[in-house]
Every structure is written in C-alpha cells, then in structure tokens.
Design a protein around this nucleic acid. Structure first.
Lengths: 298, 298
DNA sequence: CGGGTGGTTGATACTTATCAATGGCTGTGG
DNA sequence: CCACAGCCATTGATAAGTATCAACCACCCG
C-alpha cells in the first residue's frame, strides 16, 4: 500500500484555518429557511465588494474566481483584484447584483419543486445535482464544483425536477434570473458563450447515459474519478495527483447507478491494486495509466 | 393474438415507394474515433413541441406538418396547404431555405464526426440518435420522430459525437445553420421558444439517466413503450392503442442499456401477461393500467 | 460514554448477460 | 422458381455482475 508523501488529513483542514466545512454538523435548525424564501443572511452587493482574500492564503484546494463562468460571462468579477482589472472593460454595465449564501454540508440548495427566480453559482465547496424517485431511488446527474452554475438549463426559464444538495459546506452566489436574462439579451455574444456551455453540458449528459447504460461498475467508478480529477485540475484544485475528496460512497453510488456496498468493494479493489489511495477525505491517483485502462477499455 | 386491422409492413415501406434496402452496411470504417479522452460528444433530442390541433387529413401513422417545431419556429411552412396559410403572417420573412432528403432505412443521417453546417429535421419516418464506443457498445439517446430536430443542441454551434441513424426510411429537411442562427437572433422571442425546447430536452436527458441508472429492465422497457406512445399521440400518429413499431429489438436494447436477448424475454413476458401485443411491426397497448404499473412502480 | 453515520466484509439471492441452437423472413442470385 | 445468405426473434442453459442482508468496526460529535 503505497502512500502519498503528503498526508492527506492535513490538507482538508489546516489549510484554510477556517474549519467549517468538515464538521458534519447535524442540521442546524435554521437551515430550512434557505430554499424557501431567500432568507436571512443575504446581503445584496456587487460582486466586487466581496473580498474573500482568496488569493492570499490560497491553499491548493482553493479555486480562483478567475476561472469562474460567471466571470467569463462577465456577470461577476469575483474577488480577485486581478480578475477585476481584467474584467473592467465591461465592469460598469455588466456586473449584476448578487447575494452570497452559505449552505452547510448535506443541506438542500435548490428544491426540485421550486426553482426560484434566482440562479446560484457555486463559489466554494462541492454540491450535487440529482433527481429522485418517490420510492427513494436517486440518480446524481452531476457534481457541482466551484464555478459551476447550478443548472444552466434553467437559466432562461425556471425548471423543476432537479434537486441540488450541498456535499460539503457550500458558498454560492445567487443572481436574479430576470437580471440575467436582460443582460444576456443585451449582449448577444454572451449568448454564444452560453450556448457553448450548453453544448458542453449536453455532451456531459450524453456521456452519463452512455456510462450508465453501457459500462461496467469498474469503468463507471474509474471514469468518475478521472472526470473529477480533470475538472478539479482545470480549477487549479489538484495537488499533484491528490485531490480533496469529500464524497461519501453513497454519492458515488448514486452517481454511477450502483449500490454503496458495491462501490466500497470496487474502491477497495482499486486501492489494493495500487490504482488509487484514499484517506482522510482525500484521494490520490497513484497509477494513472492503469486507472485509465480500467476506465476506458472494457 | 389480436391483430391490428392495419398490417404494418406496408407502413414502413410503401409510403414512399422508394424502398431502400435493409442492408445493414456495417459501421462506416471510421467509427473508432470516439473515445480517447473525455471527449465531448453527443447530445440529445426530443424536440417535440406539441401542437394538438393536428389536422384530420392524416392517415393514422402520418404526421402533419402542423405539429412540427420547425413550423412553430416559423422556419418551415411544411407541405400542408393549411399549415402554409396559417403560417403566412410571417411567411416572407421567416421561411428559410431548406432542402429535402430521403434516407433509406438503417443508413446514417449524421455522422458523429462531422456535424455539418446543416441541421436536419425529421419530416417522416423514425430515426435514432446515439453514441457508440470504439468496442461497439452503443447507447441510443433518443428516438427521432417526425417533427424532431436532429440535435437541437448543435443548433447554434456544431457539435460532434452523436450519430443519427435512420430506422425506417426517413425524409428530412435540412436547414443551414448560419441562416438559422441569423434568423433566431433577429427574432428574440424565437429564442425563448428554443430555450423551452432546450429545457424539455434536458428534462428528457435527466429522465434517461434516471432510467438507466436506477430502474429495472422491465421498468425501462415499459417506460420506453409508454413514452413512444405518448409522443406519437401528440403527433396524431396513434390509432387507438395501436402504433407503428418499426424498432428492432436491438434498438430497444441499445436505448435501455440491455441486451437484445433480454429485451426479447421481457417483451415476451409482457405479451404473455396481456399487457401489449406486437405483430407485423405494430404494437398495441392492451392493458394500459398494468403497463403503467410495470413502468412506474418498482 | 452513547448514538449516528459511514465504510468494510462475507454469504447469498436475484437480475441480466452470454452462449448456442433453432426457425422465420426477406432479398438475392442462379 | 428455388436455394441461399443475412438478419431477427425466440428459447434454454449457464455464467457473470450487482444487489441485498447482516454483522462489525471506526469514527465524530454531542
């Protein structure tokens, strides 16, 4: 059992000093407020005002607003000075009002029945977007990482059916759909960007169907890991081959259409075979080549 | 063994006179292309915007252009006089040039590697949109019925990864993407309609993932039948509980992530249980209630 | 210290795939 | 017109892949 030189426990915790995310914290009583009424804590502000000092202490799991689609669409300048100056050409006209929210781990971000007129974008933390059957069977459609729009599909029109749920503590920024619509239609080239995001998402959805319909359990799980690694890498959230990995096996099971028990067995095999190493909510890819083989080829 | 009064073989073939053969024509040599890296591929469809008031003229398996999304978007006046006159208010400005094509059964309509600058819309016949792995495993993402846009996702930008293939002989109409884009941006309210189509498609994609990931073989197959029936009904293509059913069991298998053999067994059970009746390329739903139960509830 | 959640593991059951053989059809070529 | 070649559907025997059940442990948090 080869072990990474970087003990992973430290990573998750010490880096931010700020310890919030990992407390599993049963549900604080007030949490219900969120989805219903756009609650309490939100202060409306322009993006620029929010200074998260992201770059200063930037530990490796952090995500820079510079890579955020909200920023790319010029919706939000994010927190970084740099981003701000880069975005300044359209700064005045394009910054949209938004409110920042913090959602504790395991709590619902968007209820399937009421997609409000607000569109959240993940700024920090991991979340999940899923559909659920009355009898409890659940399918996770995508993992939401920092910079992801929670359901681009309902950017222009509200859409129900999907639920979004925080995996770790999540901070997100909510935009008003109407603002957003106005904005997009005023800047048609933004629509093109949006269209590209749409196409990308569609491609993801097709892949998901292919995976679920036609790939074995091993393949699905290996692909899930590789996909996440790739997405995290794009956000500068990989530390070499190591990544934060807050998912419970139930999440993996619901994403791959498997059972938590079976997921456990497969992950166990992967670790015993020296493909990956999981510990303390961190996952390290040890043998990329083999993992890829497990993922791709039957 | 109750038999529909309308012998179905005629349907697929005789209509167009042109009877292109059933040659299975192995996959075009280039099919290896797909997999490598987590490539973008694919997309979905199920456009059907419903126009209930389908005209009376239609033979039972026929589809009136009046229900066509192309018409709804005012792209195409279709063939019916009536539709033409109804659409005339914007006839001059909105009609786009298009060309009509006839594709024999089993032939590729759109190749996964080269989604050209033309966007086809199905006018007649059944087709299928799918993604395929290098080793041959295939997942059908949707069935294309008359009025469906072949891949709405790549309306604005070309996208590759999906293949579209004719099931029966298909006639379709191709529009030029650039024309279409210009047109859509000139008429912003059309964009809204498009957006609604998109949302609808997304919902379908979510359902597909849920089906493949979390439902049993029986459920998937029953749902497939009910879905098709519903979509055909919207197009006025149901004859009571009977429908044209040109799908091979391989299509059903590839759509449900199962094996043709297993599909055969399940369909056999359904028939023996008196839920449906299949004969001569026609399917009749005999016990809707039970079929629905098989589809819905575990 | 106790309770709840999550992960691991083994035994077993069920679902679905695989293999193989058969027969029906359809279109083809002699 | 017939025989043949492919494809398609059906069926039974068997194998593989996952699920289910149950027990146990290890934490984390209160």
């Amino acid at each position: 059992m080869k072990l990474t030189t970087v003990p992973a426990e430290q990573i998750g915790n010490k880096q931010n000093g700020n310890e919030l995310e990992f407390k599993h914290a049963g549900f604080p009583p007030e949490n219900i407020t969120n989805e219903a009424g756009y609650p309490a804590q939100q202060q409306w502000m322009h993006a620029a005002e929010l200074n998260q000092n992201v770059e200063a202490n930037s530990p490796q799991w952090n995500f820079s607003c510079a890579a955020c689609p909200a920023l790319e669409l010029k919706l939000c300048t994010g927190a970084t000075k740099k981003a701000e100056s880069e975005a300044n050409l359209s700064a005045d006209t394009s910054l949209l009002a938004s409110s920042v929210h913090t959602i504790p781990a395991r709590r619902t971000i968007c209820h399937p029945k009421e997609w409000s007129e607000f569109i959240p974008i993940i700024c920090h933390g991991w979340a999940v977007s899923s559909v659920t059957l009355p009898d409890g069977r659940r399918q996770i459609l995508s993992f939401l990482l920092p910079g992801d729009i929670v359901s681009t599909a309902c950017l222009l029109e509200p859409m129900s059916g999907r639920a979004a749920e925080a995996v770790t503590e999540v901070t997100c920024r909510k935009f008003k759909r109407s603002d957003l619509k106005d904005f997009l239609f005023k800047h048609p080239n933004q629509l093109e960007k949006l269209s590209r995001i749409w196409i990308e998402e569609r491609a993801q959805a097709d892949q998901l169907a292919l995976d679920l319909g036609r790939r074995s359990a091993d393949e699905r799980i290996a692909r899930l890991i590789l996909n996440l690694a790739e997405r995290l890498a794009k956000r500068g959230m990989m530390d070499g081959q190591a990544m934060e990995f807050p998912l419970r096996q139930r999440h993996i099971a619901d994403a791959t259409g498997l059972t938590p028990v079976h997921v456990s067995k497969v992950l166990g095999e992967f670790q015993r075979a020296g493909l990956i190493e999981i510990s303390s909510r961190s996952l390290t890819i040890i043998d990329v080549t083999e993992l890829r083989r497990a993922a791709d080829w039957r």
